[in-house]
């Protein structure tokens, strides 16, 4: 677009992008490769991307593993619900955090930082007791609330950053029209925040989808297990890892995330912005 003047820039950009993609994507490629190799081949010294013999049995082994599908469904419910909750309650609060200065802001920001630094292992016991009094241990509702709570600081922190990036003149223009604050928020601020909201939503989905420690400690019944918990059942004692089935299961588990990303990334574009400013 604006780089027409320099003919070499485009190819250089493509090369750079390709390097990034190789770096970021190669482990997945290797995972897929491992998922179609037999354990004999995985334990050999030959390095090859393609298997000498396609070993699809890893996939049937992975799917035969108790509850892989059910735990994927559990993960999806928990991740989607907590993402929706996070966005819903974080947006207004982030706005306040960004726009109102002073002691409250300092306290809010300070809290966010402290809550992220303090080791989770020291929080887990009190948290477990609190959830137990509310009868929310071994429950997906409890896990959803925990995931929501522990993603909130990040969501608030990021969203307030994006709010701070929105020129206040836009809002003021809205208020001059005599619109109420809430309607200014709804009509002007939130649409402008769209890319930030999408980024935050993706983060909160992923962190819930991949979250291991809270799920491990809080869930007890196998029918409540989430995906990461079920996947670790391929890792046995004494370092025995059923590598092939684990790779197959992980690849299957990665597909929903990738689909989710493909849908969400479309919303990460400037198109929304333009519309919002006009509206």
């Amino acid at each position: 677009m604006r780089t027409v003047a320099r003919p070499l820039v485009r190819p250089a950009q493509y090369v750079a992008l390709a390097c990034y993609i190789v770096f970021l994507g190669f482990p997945l490629l290797w995972l897929i490769s491992a998922s179609v190799k037999s354990s004999g081949e995985l334990n050999s010294l030959t390095v090859s991307l393609l298997p000498s013999e396609w070993h699809w049995q890893n996939y049937s082994d992975a799917l035969a593993r108790q509850g892989l599908v059910r735990s994927a469904a559990n993960s999806a419910v928990v991740a989607l619900t907590s993402t929706a909750l996070v966005i819903l309650i974080a947006m207004p609060a982030a706005y306040v955090l960004a726009r109102l200065k002073g002691a409250f802001r300092v306290a809010g920001v300070g809290w966010i930082l402290v809550s992220q630094v303090f080791p989770v292992i020291l929080i887990i016991l009190p948290l477990f007791l609190i959830l137990r009094t509310m009868n929310l241990t071994d429950s997906l509702v409890g896990l959803t609330l925990v995931h929501t709570t522990y993603t909130l600081p990040f969501a608030l922190w990021m969203l307030q950053g994006y709010v701070a990036g929105i020129p206040t003149e836009l809002e003021e223009a809205g208020s001059m029209d005599g619109a109420s604050r809430l309607s200014v928020l709804r009509r002007i601020v939130f649409p402008l925040l769209a890319p930030g909201i999408v980024a935050t939503a993706m983060f909160s989905f992923v962190s819930s989808w991949n979250e291991f420690f809270f799920a491990l400690v809080l869930l007890q019944s196998p029918e409540n297990y989430t995906l990461p918990i079920t996947l670790t059942s391929f890792i046995g004692g004494e370092g025995k890892v059923a590598l092939g089935p684990l790779a197959a299961g992980s690849f299957l588990a990665a597909i929903p995330s990738i689909v989710f990303f493909s849908i969400m990334q479309k919303k990460l574009t400037g198109g929304l912005m333009a519309g919002a400013v006009k509206g």
Binding site: L216, V217, G236
Partner: peptide, 11 residues
């Protein structure tokens, strides 16, 4: 109640 070796101590 099947549980994995990974993280069972913490649990």
């Amino acid at each position: 109640v099947p549980t994995g070796w990974d993280g069972v101590y913490d649990k």
